[in-house]
Simulated scan of single mutants.
Amino acid sequence: MSEYSWPGENGRYMPDAASAWAETVRVLPVGTRITGEVIGRQPFGVFLSIDGRPDAVVLARIDRMPRCMELPTVGQQVTGQVVWHADHNHQVGVVLGEWAEHENLLPRFRVGQAVSGRITKIAPIGVFVHLDHCVEGLIPLTGPTPTTEAFTEGQEISVQIITVDHKRNRIHLGEPIAPELCTAQVPHNLFRTRHDPQDTA
């Protein structure tokens, strides 16, 4: 059985969301907390059947899912909160509760803060560093001759936070610094980084 499926393939019909759209928006405004069941699973997110609203087409998009998590499976019970309405295709967007818990961790991190973490992945775009439960930062590899020779997976390093993008749930980091500097704030220009905060993608 494929890990991806549409609601109709699981014996669950897709409702006529257009005819009920005005009522759906009225009873499910942004901020509404919901409970429901996963009825479809695609690479871009999961479709939900919401308790008490069988006519609503509800989607939890993967762009709000932390990298360390996986999409819930069909039949799984979930909770969440409404975050958008799409008039063009009559969909209600939600962020799942466990995803939102991760987003609430980001305010702990501040630009200029020195932190320690473990390298979890080395990729063409940069080095990923685990900072906290389900929170990773990225040391971008930019410039004319980017290199990963100084890094190994599993390595413990200390770095300075360059940017914290709460909207896109991203933390960009600078080059490694001395571990003892992690006991306090360090000047932003203490070391030369490969990344200009103004060029954040």
Score class of each variant (00 low, 15 high):
Pro66Arg: 09
Pro66Glu: 08
Arg67Ala: 13
Met69Cys: 05
Leu71Phe: 03
Pro72Lys: 07
Thr73Asn: 14
Thr73Phe: 08
Thr73His: 15
Thr73Tyr: 11
Thr73Gly: 08
Val74Thr: 07
Gly75Cys: 10
Gln76Met: 03
Gln77Gly: 06
Gln77Tyr: 11
Gln77Ala: 09
Val78Pro: 02
Val78Ser: 01
Thr79Glu: 15
Gly80Leu: 06
Gln81Gly: 04
Gln81His: 07
Val82Ala: 04
Val83Ser: 11
Trp84Ile: 01
Trp84His: 11
His85Gly: 02
His85Ile: 01
Ala86Gln: 15
Ala86Asp: 14
Asp87Pro: 05
His88Ile: 06
His88Met: 04
His88Cys: 05
His88Leu: 11
Asn89Lys: 15
His90Val: 05
His90Ser: 10
Gln91Leu: 13
Val95Thr: 08
Val95Pro: 02
Leu96Phe: 00
Leu96Cys: 02
Gly97Leu: 07
Trp99Ser: 01
Trp99Pro: 02
Trp99His: 00
Ala100Ile: 04
Glu101Phe: 02
His102Tyr: 02
His102Phe: 03
Glu103Ser: 00
Pro107Gly: 01
Pro107Cys: 02
Arg108Glu: 05
Arg108Ile: 03
Arg108Ser: 03
Phe109Trp: 03
Val111Ala: 00
Val111Thr: 10
Gly112Trp: 07
Gly112Met: 06
Gly112Thr: 03
Gln113Gly: 07
Ala114Phe: 03
Ala114Ser: 07
Ser116Trp: 05
Ser116Arg: 15
Gly117Glu: 04
Arg118Asn: 09
Arg118Trp: 05
Ile119Thr: 13
Ile119Asn: 14
Lys121Val: 00
Ile122Thr: 04
Ala123Ile: 00
Ala123Glu: 13
Ala123Asp: 12
Ala123Asn: 07
Ala123Arg: 14
Pro124Met: 08
Pro124Val: 05
Ile125Thr: 09
Gly126Pro: 02
Gly126His: 11
Phe128Pro: 00
Phe128Arg: 13
Phe128Ala: 09
Phe128Asp: 11
Val129Thr: 00
Val129Gln: 03
His130Tyr: 10
Leu131Ala: 03
Leu131Val: 09
Asp132His: 09
Asp132Asn: 07
Asp132Trp: 09
His133Ala: 05
His133Val: 07
Cys134Ser: 13
Val135Thr: 04
Val135Ile: 12
Glu136Trp: 14
Gly137Arg: 11
Ile139Pro: 06
Pro140Asn: 06
Pro140Trp: 08
Leu141His: 14
Thr142Cys: 08
Thr142Leu: 15
Thr142Lys: 15
Pro144Ala: 10
Pro144Gly: 08
Pro144Tyr: 12
Thr145Arg: 12
Thr145Pro: 01
Thr145Cys: 13
Thr145Ser: 15
Pro146Cys: 12
Thr147Ile: 10
Thr147Leu: 09
Thr148Val: 10
Thr148His: 14
Glu149Asp: 09
Ala150Val: 06
Ala150Gly: 03
Phe151Lys: 11
Thr152Tyr: 14
Gly154Glu: 05
Gln155Tyr: 03
Glu156Gln: 15
Ile157Gln: 11
Ser158Asn: 04
Ser158Lys: 09
Val159Cys: 10
Val159Trp: 15
Val159Gly: 11
Gln160Asp: 11
Gln160Met: 15
Ile161Ala: 12
Thr163Leu: 14
Thr163Pro: 03
Val164His: 01
Asp165Met: 06
Asp165Ala: 06
Asp165Glu: 10
His166Ala: 07
His166Ile: 01
His166Asn: 11
His166Ser: 06
Lys167Pro: 01
Lys167Met: 07
Lys167Ser: 08
Arg168Glu: 10
Arg168Phe: 11
Arg168Ser: 06
Arg170Ile: 10
Arg170Ser: 13
Arg170Val: 09
